[in-house]
């Protein structure tokens, strides 16, 4: 067996995990506000195609990311209006959003099949990137990798230490009580859903602009569903989202590298392991009886109820 360069491995697992990290973090905030949006995959793929189209047409990947976030947020507003104002079932609406996103993206994407993405420069931070070992791992990525890590810290801080975070959690834990205290439940949820959509859009654009980088129909290939699983895996906690995303992304990259290096560890076990760990976590939290899910998750709210 040839050796795997651990520095390259860690660097590439960070890249592989960034899309699911972004999407999962967004979905966590949505769920913290008491809304279950199963449309993550649909918003991701829409972000992927829109980001790619804008990137190709303007030559600027950064602009692609911005518009992808807007597109994800825009699509999530469809979900918000249907579930928050028209009070429809969130599970069904979310699934519908995914199907809609997949169809919409292949429609928008038709002219972009086979076109190459504009480059997205990596930050080569002077001095720091020359540090042995840590340099290549930490200081030679593209800005989105750092943004995703920054977002984890930011979401954690906002949810834990600020009034806005407290209100968001209150709305998610018990919307009737939050309403009675005078908080605008629907407004808070609209904002959370928009944030989730924007993050999913960014995650999708990361796949099409950096990770693959090209547009292929259906290219997110289930990443949105993995993001949803990570939220549960992480018991709705930001730092655990980071752990979960890097675990899922990392094992995938690791098993491919192990194979390329000629390892004899059976591939099947490695491919299975993230899912096994998720099931294990689910079992553990249900045995403990305290799964940490927001109390009002996926329940319909109406001021008169």
């Amino acid at each position: 067996m040839d050796s795997i360069n651990p520095i390259l491995l860690i660097a590439s697992l960070m890249v592989a995990s960034t899309p699911i990290l972004l999407a999962a973090l967004g979905e966590m905030v949505v769920e913290k506000s008491g809304v279950l949006n199963l449309g993550v995959e649909g918003m991701m793929i829409t972000g992927a195609v829109v980001g790619f189209a804008i990137g190709v047409n303007t030559g600027s990947s950064s602009l692609g990311f911005v518009v992808a976030a807007l597109a994800g947020a825009g699509l999530s507003m469809v979900f918000a209006i249907i579930t928050q104002l028209l009070l429809s079932n969130q599970v069904a609406t979310g699934l519908g959003l995914t199907l809609f996103g997949l169809g919409l993206s292949s429609l928008i994407g038709k002219p972009y099949v086979g076109i190459k993405a504009p480059g997205f420069a990596k930050l080569d931070i002077p001095l720091l990137s020359d540090i042995p070992v840590l340099g290549p791992i930490l200081f030679r990525h593209d800005p989105m990798v750092y943004l995703s890590l920054l977002m984890v810290a930011l979401v954690w801080y906002l949810l834990t230490y600020t009034r806005a975070g407290l209100v968001l959690r209150a709305v998610g834990e018990n919307h009737a009580a939050a309403h009675a205290l005078g908080y605008k439940v629907v407004r808070v949820r609209f904002m959370a859903i928009a944030f989730g959509g924007a993050m999913a859009g960014l995650g999708g654009a990361y796949v099409s602009l950096v990770r693959v980088p090209q547009w292929v129909e259906g290219m997110t290939a289930g990443a949105g569903w993995i993001a949803l699983a990570i939220v549960v895996f992480a018991s709705w906690r930001p730092w655990r989202i980071l752990l979960g995303a890097y675990l899922f992304g990392g094992i995938n990259v690791l098993q491919l590298n192990l194979q390329a290096a000629g390892s004899t560890i059976p591939v099947e076990y490695l491919s299975m392991s993230p899912y096994l760990v998720t099931i294990l976590v689910l079992v553990i939290i249900s045995v403990r009886g305290n799964h940490g899910a927001p109390g009002s998750l996926s329940r319909v709210f109406h001021a008169s109820h």
């Binding site: 592989a16 899309p19 693959v212 090209q214 290219m219 995938n252 990259v253 491919l256």
Partner: peptide, 13 residues
Amino acid sequence: PAKEADAATALIE
């Protein structure tokens, strides 16, 4: 696509 790209990268490495 993402996984196929990762596989190609792993082989190139």
